[in-house]
């Protein structure tokens, strides 16, 4: 099977290792990944500022780029959720809406793709770690892919998952929120990190690059020896 990779801009330019791990996981799952040229950003940042008008041209670009894909796989819950939302940005009678619906329906977050589309939970991955899972609000509540993440991690050999005190709690990033309200964002991420520290984990795992970036860079500021890993990195294990 073939799948097109949808690489969020954050992964492309800041967390390329997540893209690499995603590629490795797909290959391991017997999928041939293709990377269509000319990807930029799904437009989430503009959407959350209330600017659907600025998202529409980006949605059109996206739909054109991925129209011919057998399936689209993305290592981000929030970007996948954005693409799933594309049809709602166009009027009911806009012919483009249907195309957007087709693309939205075949776009999956990585874990969701493996579990729901391929029916795979055990990728034979090994990762010797004691880790806490940060569910990511966008992946769990908004996209509804949280159970796929959990199912995949449950099958990783050597991985011990420890619970967080408030697993459902946001990490405080929220895109522009972290810049517009730095104090509140800091307060929320500090609590998340406190919870991680208390859990005794050596690593925190999430399926969302923006949470990953937020938690990792805030932990780095506190000089904590705790790793932050993307789901794909855990599933890739030593695979890259």
């Amino acid at each position: 099977m073939e799948a097109f990779l949808f690489i969020p801009c954050l992964v492309e330019h800041v967390l390329p290792q997540v893209g690499e791990a995603t590629t490795a996981v797909l290959v391991r799952a017997g999928v041939t990944p293709t990377l269509p040229k000319g990807q930029t950003c799904c437009g989430q940042f503009a959407y959350k500022r209330g600017r659907a008008d600025l998202v529409r041209p980006l949605a059109r670009r996206f739909v054109e780029l991925f129209q011919d894909a057998p399936a689209v796989v993305c290592p981000s819950g929030s970007c996948t959720a954005m693409v799933r939302r594309y049809p709602s940005l166009f009027a009911e009678d806009d012919p483009f809406r249907e195309q957007a619906e087709e693309v939205a329906a075949k776009t999956f977050e990585l874990g969701q793709f493996l579990v729901e589309r391929l029916g795979m939970v055990d990728l034979g991955a090994r990762c010797d770690l004691t880790a806490a899972l940060h569910g990511s609000c966008q992946t769990t509540r908004v996209l509804g892919a949280g159970s796929a993440t959990e199912a995949l991690l449950a099958k990783v050999a050597g991985l011990t998952l420890v619970p967080l005190a408030r697993p459902e709690r946001c990490c405080g990033f929220g895109g522009a929120f972290s810049i517009d309200y730095p104090e509140a964002s800091e307060a929320i991420v500090s609590e998340k990190i406190d919870d991680i520290v208390v859990s005794g984990a050596d690593a925190v795992i999430t399926a969302e690059p923006s949470c990953l970036l937020n938690i990792a860079s805030a932990m780095a500021k506190r000089d904590l020896p705790i790793k932050a890993l993307h789901l794909a990195e855990v599933l890739a294990g030593e695979g890259i």
Binding site: E12, V14, L15, G19, N214, S217, A218, A220
Partner: peptide, 16 residues
């Protein structure tokens, strides 16, 4: 503002 409580992650060689 972003970096008040965070270490700058840095831009990397693009994945593509």
């Amino acid at each position: 503002r972003f970096l008040r409580c965070r270490e700058f992650p840095g831009l990397a060689r693009p994945f593509s």
